Simulated assay, not measured.
Amino acid sequence: MNRFKGVVYRAHHPNWNFGPMSGDGAVHHGGRFSPVGLPALYASLRPETAWLEAQQGFPFKARSLVMCAYDVDCEGVLDLTTEAGQEAAGTSLKELACPWEDRREQGSATWRLSAGLRAKGCAAILVRSFAPGAEQFDVNIVFWRWSGDAPSNVRLSEKSLRQFRKIKIE
């Protein structure tokens, strides 16, 4: 596992503006690497990838989104974009790309993978995006542990904070 330091992006539906750091969307709906009930913060290394991720299921009309940037300095990040990282985790690109939503009842392979990685102290993973239209260079980061402090520091960037202060949901 390595340290990741940089800026990541997330596209929020305006209804989630009250909690851009919460991970509550994953708690309520689950995700590829988080079963329902598990907080997870899904972000992308490029804003374009965050947009692709947020538009899944809306192929003909883009929906309103708020793009946020996060400053990250996080230890315990496993890179699953490489064969070496996949081998270290005991997984494969095929398993990572599995149709997890079709396997909610029995639990997806990616949920079992994330449980094992979390048990070994993994705070986050880097993984290819499997959103429609994503290319090999479209990479996501999924946090299972994050806070405003080391070793899992993830903070809303100052620019994004100013943006959120201007938004008023009526």
Results as ranks from 00 to 15, higher is better:
66 V>G: 02
90 G>C: 06
47 P>A: 04
72 V>D: 00
126 L>A: 04
170 E>D: 12
31 G>E: 01
109 A>D: 07
110 T>P: 05
94 K>F: 13
149 D>L: 09
5 K>P: 00
28 H>W: 13
51 W>P: 05
137 F>V: 06
148 G>F: 05
169 I>N: 12
136 Q>P: 00
159 K>F: 11
37 G>M: 10
41 L>Y: 03
89 A>S: 06
5 K>L: 02
135 E>C: 10
72 V>I: 11
20 P>T: 10
68 C>S: 15
112 R>P: 05
93 L>V: 12
94 K>R: 14
31 G>A: 08
2 N>P: 06
138 D>L: 12
132 P>F: 14
34 S>M: 02
83 E>Y: 08
155 R>H: 00
97 A>D: 08
22 S>V: 03
129 S>A: 09
99 P>N: 06
4 F>Q: 07
152 S>F: 05
92 S>F: 09
24 D>M: 12
127 V>F: 05
127 V>Y: 07
66 V>H: 11
5 K>N: 10
161 L>T: 09
128 R>P: 14
161 L>C: 13
151 P>E: 03
88 A>D: 06
106 Q>E: 15
28 H>P: 05
61 K>R: 14
129 S>T: 08
58 F>H: 15
75 E>R: 09
143 F>H: 04
165 R>I: 00
45 L>F: 13
107 G>E: 02
85 G>T: 04
64 S>I: 14
25 G>N: 08
26 A>C: 12
123 A>M: 02
99 P>A: 04
30 G>W: 06
7 V>L: 10
19 G>T: 08
81 T>I: 00
60 F>W: 14
112 R>A: 15
28 H>F: 15
134 A>R: 02
46 R>Y: 08
34 S>P: 07
21 M>T: 09
10 R>N: 04
6 G>M: 05
53 E>T: 06
159 K>T: 12
105 E>F: 11
46 R>P: 00
68 C>A: 15
160 S>G: 07
4 F>D: 04
116 G>N: 14
121 G>T: 03
130 F>K: 03
61 K>H: 13
125 I>E: 02
164 F>S: 00
56 Q>R: 15
104 R>S: 08
149 D>C: 02
163 Q>L: 15
97 A>M: 02
75 E>Y: 03
105 E>N: 02
17 N>W: 15
77 V>R: 01
163 Q>S: 10
150 A>C: 01
59 P>Y: 11
33 F>Y: 15
70 Y>Q: 04
8 V>C: 09
160 S>I: 10
102 D>K: 15
143 F>I: 01
119 A>E: 12
7 V>Q: 10
8 V>G: 07
82 T>R: 07
98 C>H: 06
92 S>Q: 06
40 A>S: 15
87 E>S: 13
57 G>W: 10
61 K>A: 11
82 T>D: 03
63 R>W: 13
72 V>H: 00
78 L>S: 07
70 Y>T: 01
96 L>M: 09
96 L>Y: 05
112 R>S: 13
170 E>G: 15
44 S>M: 07
128 R>Q: 12
106 Q>W: 08
60 F>Y: 15
37 G>R: 13
44 S>W: 09
167 I>F: 15
95 E>G: 00
14 P>D: 09
38 L>Y: 11
39 P>S: 14
95 E>W: 10
165 R>Q: 11
125 I>S: 03
144 W>N: 05
122 C>N: 02
54 A>S: 14
